[in-house]
């Protein structure tokens, strides 16, 4: 699969402060790419560089195989973290204005706005002033103006902040639909639960460096600890645990409600692998649950940052 966006060796300094230190990311086409990292890691700086709001000190940004040019803004839709609308301006008028700034004609903008306002059931708000809307309502309008011009690349910075759970789900579904229609989505956040659900690819930023990137499933495999969660019943061997501990690490164990039941956390060590473990267990009882403990994004996030801090 080809990359829609490549940012190569980006460096950005603000005076003495380095925001991005030789950062490279590759965003595959029609994917959802998570840009993760704690506050101040450099996510917003990179996003602003892609949006040509600021210029990098060095490095290049390639969009769709060509270096980024000012005219490319019409191919990008950006919903910043710090977002808002003109409070005194009417919703419809404002959406039209922002759409035209993105290069749409008035006619085209009106047609598409009408579609989206119906879709998100906010047609009644067209003539209202923004200051009359709630924060969540204003966010819906903001979402529409971000995606209205059907950009190839969509960038959302903390998109779910300010939404109630119902509307957050609605927006999440819309983002997935846009991806299915061929749009590429960059999605910056420090909230990990949304990353698990949405992102195929991630890059983890910390203190101006890209410390980890790639396909989320690959990264998870890399971070796996070879630990398995096991629940058994009808255990025939009284010395199961003892025998098990000869070949495997037992991290925790507890007896079940009845004598011949147990739940365990077992880590594979040495030359043994998962198959050896499951074969052994199957010989001595019935397996109710057997699953590998895969780290979630949050654990990966914390581990990687701790590792980065140690390396410094």
């Amino acid at each position: 699969m080809s990359n829609l966006l490549v940012a190569e060796n980006i460096v950005k300094n603000y005076g003495d402060y380095t925001a991005l230190n030789n950062v490279t990311i590759e965003v595959p086409e029609a994917s959802i790419f998570g840009l993760l990292g704690p506050n101040g890691a450099g996510k917003t700086s990179l996003i602003r560089i892609i949006n040509q709001i600021i210029m990098p000190d060095s490095g290049s940004v390639i969009l769709d195989g060509k270096p980024l040019v000012p005219d490319d803004i019409k191919h990008i839709g950006y919903m910043p973290e710090e977002r808002g609308l003109y409070k005194g301006m009417k919703v419809g008028e404002q959406a039209l204005y922002l759409a035209q700034l993105k290069g749409m004609t008035r006619y085209d903008a009106k047609k598409k706005l009408s579609f989206w306002f119906d879709k998100l059931e906010i047609r009644d708000w067209w003539g209202k002033k923004v200051q009359e809307l709630s924060k969540g309502m204003a966010q819906k309008v903001q979402f529409i103006v971000t995606v209205l011009h059907q950009p190839k690349l969509l960038i959302f910075d903390e998109p779910f902040s300010g939404f109630d759970p119902i509307n957050a789900n609605l927006i999440k579904d819309e983002i997935l639909k846009l991806r299915d229609d061929g749009a590429t989505v960059i999605f910056s956040t420090h909230r990990m639960e949304s990353v698990e659900e949405l992102c195929e690819y991630i890059a983890l930023f910390d203190k101006s460096y890209n410390i980890l990137d790639g396909k989320l499933s690959d990264i998870k495999r890399e971070f796996k600890t070879n630990t398995f969660e096991i629940e058994m019943y009808d255990i025939k061997n009284k010395f199961l645990l003892n025998e098990l501990s000869e070949n495997f690490d037992i991290l925790s164990s507890s007896a079940g409600p009845r004598d011949n039941e147990a739940s365990l956390q077992v880590k594979i060590k040495g030359a043994k692998d998962s198959n050896d473990l499951i074969q052994y267990l199957a010989m001595h009882g019935s397996i109710a649950k057997y699953s590998e403990m895969i780290p979630d994004a949050n654990e990966i996030f914390i581990k990687a940052i701790e590792k980065n801090a140690v390396n410094e």
């Binding site: 000012p70 803004i73 950006y78 977002r83 808002g84 609308l85 003109y86």
Partner: peptide
Amino acid sequence: IEEKTSRIIEVIISSVK
């Protein structure tokens, strides 16, 4: 100042210089 406090500024300057 209004554009700054209403936070629309970043939306706008992602479209225009």
